[in-house]
Amino acid sequence: MRAGEELPPLEIPITRTLIVAGAIASRDYQDVHHDAELARQKGSPDIFMNILTTNGLVGRYITDHFGPAAVLRKVAIRLGAPNHPGDTMVLTGTIEEVDGDTATVRVVGANGLGSHVTGTVTVTVPSDTVLSGGA
């Protein structure tokens, strides 16, 4: 674990099922996340992923890489281009800073429209479980 290290990318197909399942699992019943017709009436071309699902996927991306002993301390994300069905989001990450067993990782999720999410995750990886580098 060192500054500058890049995490392997994670490709996430944005299916209608993922958007709806993520919205319901996060108890977000806003119509724009499950009802295409009402989403269109509100000016969106289709339903789009809710921020809680994006947050969950960013968390998963980090713990997938650092393993089950990794402890998430902070997740801060900003949304840009929406995730609509049929798109693919590719999550990439770069370790920006390492302080003892805690790393700050810059995460970007890009889809066909541009940058869906940019953010920073702070994660602690107990030293006896630190991966020797990448997956």
């Binding site: 996430i12 993922l18 399942a21 993520g22 319901i24 699992a25 996060s26 108890r27 809680l52 699902t53 947050n55 969950g56 996927l57 960013v58 968390g59 998963r60 713990t63 997938d64 089950p68 002993a69 998430l72 997740v75």
Partner: peptide, 28 residues
């Protein structure tokens, strides 16, 4: 479990007797 299924998250820390909730579920 529903959250992990939706997210495709297979982290073993979220299952079993000592399970914790995925931290990103905080708002949920």
């Amino acid at each position: 479990r529903h959250w992990c299924e939706a997210m495709g998250d297979t982290n073993p820390a979220y299952t079993g007797p000592g399970a914790i909730a995925p931290p990103t579920m905080l708002q949920a």
